[in-house]
Structures are given as C-alpha cells and as structure tokens.
Amino acid sequence: MPPNAPSRPGGQPTTRPQTALTAIRALVFVLSLLPFLHLLRGALTDGLGANPLEYLTQQTGTWTFNFLLLTLTITPLRQMSGVHWLIRLRRMLGLFCFFYAVLHFAAWVWFEHFFLLEAMARDILKRPFITVGFVAFALLVPLAATSSQYAQRRLGGRRWQTLHRSIYLIGILACVHYFWLVKITAIVYPLTYAILLAVLLGWRARDRIARYHGPPHQRMMGK
C-alpha cells in the first residue's frame, strides 16, 4: 500500500488520533519483542530445555513464520473490518518477521555450522529444505531494505508493491521449508501453517477476481 494512498472514495475518514495510534504501535512493538525476550531470558538462565540450541533454532523459525502470517493478515482484516489504521502496523510486523528471520539464520550459521562457509555452502546446495529456507531468507532482505517511506518514494508505489508481493512466494517457500524438515509425526505443525497461508492467499485471489468483476468503487489498491 503506498503511503499516500487516498482514503476510500466516499468513505468516512479512517484516521485515528495520532497519539492513540502511537500508543498502539508502541504496544505492538513491545508485544512483538516478547518472544525474543523470552528466548534471551531462557538462554541466560539455562531455561531452554535439554537441547537449547535446537530450541532457539526452532523458536526463531516459528516466530518468523508467525510474523509473516500476521503481516499478511493486515490487509484482509483491514478490508473486512474497515479499520484502516491497521495498515500503519504492517511495516513493523513485516520488519519483525525479518528480525526473527535474521535470528533464525544466525542460529543456523552459528549453531549448525560455527561460521564455516564451506559447510554452509554444502548445506545450501545439498539439502533441499535448507536451499528453500535460504532462498526465502534472501528474498526477505530486499523487502526489509525497501521498507522505509523513503525507499517507497524512490521506487514509486507500483514498483514497490510489485516487489513486495514476493512475500507470497516467500510464504510458500517457508511452508515447503517447514514440511521438508519435519518428521511425519510432526506433520500437523507445517500443515497448520500451510492452511493459514492458503486462507490468506486465497482471500487475496478471491479479492482480486472480485475487483476485476465488481463495481469500480471496490477496486481498491490492496495487497
């Protein structure tokens, strides 16, 4: 969504008082940091179970995926509820997705390979689930890098939006990554994420079809 998008033609003003929004954003920021603080405390107090390195790797991966889904939930939620200021939370959620992805990637670099470039390269080339995870992470980098309003303006709304639609692909890659790494006995976890992602992407597909066929005032620019 471009930063200067006009409000819906004929709709009511959708802005909230700036102070309330600032408070909400501060709250979301703190909430988003809680998983990280929980892991940090666990790491410092030996509270991460019998295999703390595995736990850290898994949890950072899970939270990356959680924030990816939350980011993708904003647009449907906003359109269905008409609560348009929700869009003002999206960038932060997306950046938290990247934040946890960086931690997840760092856990792999450090705990799995102890910074050995050769071992990492071999892993990426040889293990399909690592290949897919690495590609997903690499695709997140330009999105994080162009998240600022300055970058949005530089790119222009349409190009920026096209670039950021790669999050759909990243979500699918994340699903494949997850399915590929678990045993059959844990299949319920990736399956749950896949269903949630399918709902979020399905909603967009349906919305897109509806916009092409529906009355013009519904043709909103949405992601």
Partner: peptide
C-alpha cells in the same frame, strides 16, 4: 536424505 549424519550434538555440549 534430508540431513547429514556426519556430526552430532551431544546433549549438554555446545559444539557438534
């Protein structure tokens, strides 16, 4: 098929 068996993490140890 999906991961290496060359190394292992002994529970309680940091390095493999």
């Amino acid at each position: 098929p999906r991961w290496s068996q060359a190394q292992e993490r002994r529970i309680g140890e940091f390095r493999k």
